[in-house]
């Protein structure tokens, strides 16, 4: 095969990493579904895809910030459940929503401080946080239930001017993340920190005067806040607080991030990649529902795609 093309396919150019191959997979999937079933291209179904993909996409977007800086956040799944439980506490929305986000900020701060100040490996720190939050949400709301503030329900299920809310959420989430990642010093500093870590020189960014610890903490806070956002959306969709709704979300989010070509060693990755990664996951499950392929094989295909993507990228060093 042509070398240049191979490099392009495997993300050899730039720091966006591998994004073309996942994009092709997305288009192939979409093309396949269009041919296989006339239902796929119906507006209703496409909106359904957006609605389905949204929570994972939002969580994965938050995760992207942490991963680009060379970290990992496993606590997001429990935080999503916790957020739905807080919102279902039968109080006014103007108190519960800020409370949920304040809690998310607290979680992110704790993760970030434990990782940066106490030298704890991100996998370990956020794994512990995952357990703590899982316990906390089961104390708060042992089984699904409760009622949500109206504002949450409206902001998730409404359609102002005929535009479905899911679409608005997607646009707002992506635009916010875009601004943070590509339109601020903070975003560039995340790449700098991750690039230093990946090349084995963790001091590199600090030597340029980048306040790496603070930047890293902020990345964890952003990841938590996006997880809380996904929690608000999910709560609105299921109309209740559910201690189990976020189970496994951290792994799905990481899957989406990795499919999008962002490398776990840090420094290489992109926001569009993550969005594509989430779309791949959504198209898979949507496609399985539309066609008569066993829904149970979709998990296996998801794993296979993830493996293919990670197998395509080749790194110099071994590692997590």
């Amino acid at each position: 095969m042509n070398r240049g093309l191979l490099r392009l396919l495997t993300g050899g150019y730039g720091r966006q990493g591998l994004w073309l191959a996942p994009l092709i997979v997305t288009l192939l999937l979409a093309g396949f579904l269009t041919v296989r079933t006339p239902d796929f291209l119906r507006t209703e179904n496409l909106l359904n895809v957006v609605a389905q993909v949204l929570p994972i996409m939002i969580t994965a977007i938050g995760q992207t910030f942490v991963v680009i800086a060379g970290g990992l956040d496993l606590s997001v799944g429990s935080l999503i459940s916790f957020t739905t439980a807080v919102l279902a506490m039968d109080g006014p929305g103007y108190i519960l929503i800020p409370a949920a986000f304040a809690f998310a900020v607290l979680v992110g701060l704790t993760n970030g401080l434990v990782v940066t100040r106490f030298n704890v490996h991100p996998i370990i720190a956020t794994l512990a946080m995952q357990y703590i939050l899982l316990g906390a949400v089961r104390l708060l709301r042992p089984v699904a239930g409760g009622t949500l503030p109206d504002i949450v329900l409206e902001s998730v299920n409404g359609a102002p001017f005929g535009i479905p809310m899911a679409l608005i959420w997607a646009v707002v989430a992506i635009a916010t993340a875009w601004k943070l990642l590509y339109g601020t010093r903070f975003g560039l500093h995340l790449f700098a920190i991750g690039g230093g870590t990946a090349s084995g020189n963790e001091q590199a960014a600090r030597n340029f005067g980048v306040s790496d610890k603070r930047t890293m903490v902020l990345a964890y806070v952003i990841s938590s806040c996006f997880a809380a956002l996904a929690g608000v959306y999910l709560a609105g969709r299921i109309s209740s607080g559910d201690p189990n709704v976020g189970l496994g979300f951290e792994l799905d989010a990481i899957t989406a991030v990795a499919i999008g070509g962002t490398q776990l060693s840090g420094g290489i990755g992109s926001l569009p990649g993550t969005v594509i990664g989430a779309l791949v996951l959504a198209l898979l499950s949507n496609g399985m529902n539309l066609t008569n392929i066993s829904p149970f094989i979709q998990t296996a295909i998801k794993g296979a795609i993830l493996m293919a993507v990670v197998g395509l990228q080749s790194r110099k060093k071994m590692g997590l």
Partner: peptide
């Protein structure tokens, strides 16, 4: 930093 452009390296931190 290898994953940043020349310009980004020149201006990193300011």
């Amino acid at each position: 930093l290898p994953n940043l452009t020349i310009a980004e390296n020149m201006y990193l931190g300011r």
